[in-house]
Amino acid sequence: MTTRVVHYINQFFAGLGGEDTATVPPASKAGAAGPGRKLAQLLGDDFEIVATVWCGDDHAAGPEVMDDLLALVRAAGPDVVVTGPAFTSGRYGLACARVAAAAAAEGIAAVACMHPDNPGIDEAGTAPVVASGEVARQMGPSLETLAAAVRKVAAGEPLGADDGRVGKIPRRNVTVDRTSAERAVALVLARLGGDREATEVPLPRFDQVTPAQPVTDVTTALVALVTEGALVPDANPDSLESARATRWLRYSLDGRDVLPAGEFRSVHGGFSTVWANEDPHRIVPLDAARQLEAEGAIGKLHGEYLVTAGNGTSVGNARRFGVEWAADLRRQGVQAALLTAT
């Protein structure tokens, strides 16, 4: 009996185009497509890719798309759901992780594939993630890692670091030979010996950011104000966290020229908010931006500002907010942003 595989990819790997088609809605077709063809070869005759599901990156990173995607996945009756490889592509990685997480939550075996720096990596829920290379040029070896992982996941076997598993690996209690004091001394000695890498607690890594192309003409551009300064309507109606934020919010600026004290306040827990609450423009410079808009220096201000609290936020969540903000702003035609940070 062959194992039925459903493969999730983005619009680019489905052959529909790049950023110009990043808003295409969820869709599917029978059989393998794009990198799925090579994956099918690697998996051999015991497996069949029965359907390929895809979605545009901007759409897939947004809210309320997951139900549609999962319905397409479910309709193909998979034994295993495979997503990616997404490499370091943020929006694609988020979608791969979430599709795998949603499938796993329904009891369907699932595995996602992306680079360890991909912001989607913490979104895979209970589904395992195996490492891909950084860029699509590394498709070949990435698919080999993925195919081996698919075989194991289909057989109900757990994946570990030896299988290329990355991201959150469930902790297991084990007995080690040496006490923590002995291990600490060994690490110090290793460090003195020139080893800069040895550690029992790897720190988050900051990856390289390729700067965006500049806007050609700000006087015709749609510009957004965004902030991690936790400025919200006075009652904090959506209960933004003051620290370790897990989400972000949006508030309308339509018809507003100013953000009066008393109507808005900062709920940030990482600094004294006295000055912010005295004059909310110290966090979100709406007054100055409106003035520049009226004078024609800004084409148009975006109709809402995006906000979170940047205080003890995990690198993973911060990356995800950035990816989601970018997708949200792109969907609405925003060309540049001013991000105030405390």
Partner: peptide, 25 residues
């Protein structure tokens, strides 16, 4: 946001951290 193609000016006080994490503007 920069990676996704939206040029973003980061207005902040802790510029050394901003540079270290790779904020372009």
């Amino acid at each position: 946001m920069e990676r996704a193609g939206i040029p973003t000016a980061l207005l902040c006080n802790l510029t050394s951290i901003a540079e270290r994490v790779g904020a372009p503007r």
